[in-house]
Write a protein that binds this DNA or RNA. Structure first.
Lengths: 392, 392
DNA sequence: CGAGACACCA
DNA sequence: TGGTGTCTCG
């Protein structure tokens, strides 16, 4: 028995709008912690992971874990029948073959009820790729949308390069080449943490296939071999980082809002700096400067809040003028130089989630899938996209 | 000789936008009472009737009845050349082969003149179906649009069911079933009147063909036989109702603004309650309560106003807070349980008229065409749609 | 201003 | 039935 009441149907509507062109069928996994969905896109290049946490619901009850296999297109249609501000209740009996959605108008003189046929979907065990990264970018989701849309006019791929200079998005096309450089707010610091969530333990990052790079002419120096040997490197690397992460989170337990400030980068900053890149010689210098930046990071306070964070954040930014550019600031954290090439088609698709929340986070390491994370108060939607191989 | 001056071209524009996809050619019948248009849609399933009453014009003169056969698409194009707030004058000489449209900008520094070629169109004598109904629903035209558009995502047909519970729109589709229940404002009363207009005398309700029901799996218990025998019932029924209606209209003649209040439901309320349904046992009680509802009915005052009613109404609802939900309230009147199935495609099409006026009225009786009526101050646009047969 | 939806056309 | 153009919505 599942009964989940959302205060506003709009969240669900936006989520499904965001994934409907990526995924045709998917299981909504309901458990007492909330509802999650994980699915590969149809070409198995991208992976999408959605979570709606239990306490983001007005009311939530799920007696025992149950997968609800839905056709995403059908669910999207049914959700189109909800007004954005309708109260939306999802119900499914155990072993039910339909998911019942009830929409109640705010003034409650209209009650709509929809029964969506459920289907059995093979629960493909999807490995979520590694959870620690060499680079983390936080920027306005609207700006991210704009960048990938702009570049998609020129070419099919974008090379995302994180360096001390900032983060550069570059695309080469038939008619024109273009690139966008984001400078970042303050000095570049170390990557302070991976995405927050409960899927940190799943470790087989191979669910997202490597995509054959089909355009762009630069840097094919390593190819597959590096891919293999990096895999080994990453494995060790990840263990190290997980250890570091544990320490970090313990420190943060005392004061969640201080997580960025209290984090000690010196240890794992040195540890994590390992492979291919050799431009990190002066990173210690940057680490020192970074402390100043961290103190002014708007993200630190926002990120730790749960549930209604997006609302409260908005109110805050209205209230005090000093932070109204909070949505615009670009935060760049980097342990080592990262350069990856991705299909713009997917990134454009991912960026549809920008209507969910003002900020988006990008996590990258060389030769592993990019993570694009939209964390809204009541949960998150995350996309993983394998890089095109052969990028420099 | 016809000369008809409209204060705002927008009315005509909207009217033609509303019918242009339903009708390709039609006669505008001009007489001293105004201009009417009646046409079957191209597949002869739906009938559309438009009236522009004489006193809704800024100036109106029509010496003798004349039909103006126009290609609706062409007229639409010509009307697109008018700005919404242009003063629009229609002119046609007797026996003319063109209709002249003149648009004068409000500041009158621009005068446009268009001559639309006329054509001879067989005046198919169109029977308007019966004018008294077992159920009457008045609701926000935007909400009606929304409901039929939502349900059209799921299936091809909608079952509209009026009961004491309210009015339910239900559609079954491949992927999902859905229904919308509107509760109605206040207790459910008797049907207090049919649509107001001058077409009450035309009685052959068969102009709108019965449409073969092609989907929906429930309730085929009766089929054709009932259809036949109901036809006889309706014939008697209609006579009774027409009598009642005459009486009613006489009452209303004295004070058109009071038509709902002054109407005495006891007589024809009893008379009209006749056939199939047996859930009217407590309707007398409801009739008494209904008076209270009627007094607060926003529709009564609004309906009778002419010309600029929609504008003034809007201003009013802004001005005094008590009536701002005037546009949202659902009024349900029912003599007996009604359940009919219609093609959503047509209803969606009809609902395009919602930009003409905030409220729409639905009139229904079992096994006869649905009437969807948009009454704006200067006239009306009404649609008749045959039910799919075999519905329960 | 972009994108989805809808109608028209081929 | 699919593609294209327009329109309205976000």
């Amino acid at each position: 028995m599942l009964e989940a009441k959302l205060a506003e149907a709009s969240v669900l509507k936006k989520l499904l709008d965001a994934i409907k062109e990526l995924v045709t069928d998917a299981n909504f996994e309901c458990s007492e912690e909330g509802i999650t969905l994980q699915a590969m896109d149809n070409s198995h290049v991208a992976l999408v992971a959605v979570k709606l946490v239990q306490n983001g619901f007005k009311k939530y009850r799920c007696d025992r874990p149950m997968p609800l296999g839905v056709n995403v297109g059908s669910l999207t249609k049914v959700l189109k029948c909800a007004k954005d501000d309708d109260v939306c209740t999802l119900r499914a009996a155990d072993e039910a073959d339909v998911l019942n959605l009830v929409y109640e108008a705010k003034n409650s003189d209209r009650i709509s009820s929809y029964d969506l046929k459920l289907m059995d979907i093979d629960a493909e065990t999807l490995g979520i790729p590694k959870t620690s990264y060499e680079a983390r970018i936080v920027l306005s989701s609207a700006e991210f949308t704009r960048i990938v849309r702009d570049l998609s006019l020129l070419g099919d791929s974008v090379r995302i390069e994180v360096s001390k200079e900032g983060v550069r998005f570059a695309s080469d096309g038939e008619a024109a080449n273009g690139n966008v450089l984001l400078k970042g707010q303050g000095p570049i610091g170390k990557v302070e943490r991976g995405p927050q969530g409960d899927d940190s333990d799943e470790e087989d990052g191979d669910a997202v296939k490597k995509e054959k790079k089909d355009d762009g002419e630069e840097g094919d120096e390593e190819e597959e071999e590096v891919d293999k040997e990096e895999e080994g490197e990453k494995e060790k690397d990840k263990k190290k980082k997980d250890k570091a992460k544990v320490k970090k989170e313990k420190v943060n337990d005392g004061d969640v809002e201080m997580d960025e400030e209290e984090y000690q980068p010196d240890e794992d900053g040195e540890e994590e700096k390992d492979e291919d890149e050799d431009e990190d010689e002066d990173e210690d210098g940057e680490s020192k400067k970074r402390k100043k930046k961290s103190n002014s990071s708007p993200r630190s306070a926002k990120k730790a809040k749960t549930a209604s964070s997006s609302k409260s954040k908005k109110g805050k930014s209205k209230a005090n003028d000093g932070e109204e550019d909070e949505d615009e600031a670009v935060i760049i954290q980097m342990n080592s130089h990262v350069s990856l090439t991705f299909s713009l088609k997917y990134l454009v698709n991912f960026s549809k989630s920008s209507n969910l929340v003002k900020r988006v986070e990008l996590y990258m390491s060389n030769d592993v899938p990019l993570l694009v994370s939209y964390d809204f108060g009541q949960g998150y939607i995350r996309y993983y996209l394998a890089p095109k191989i052969g990028d420099d």
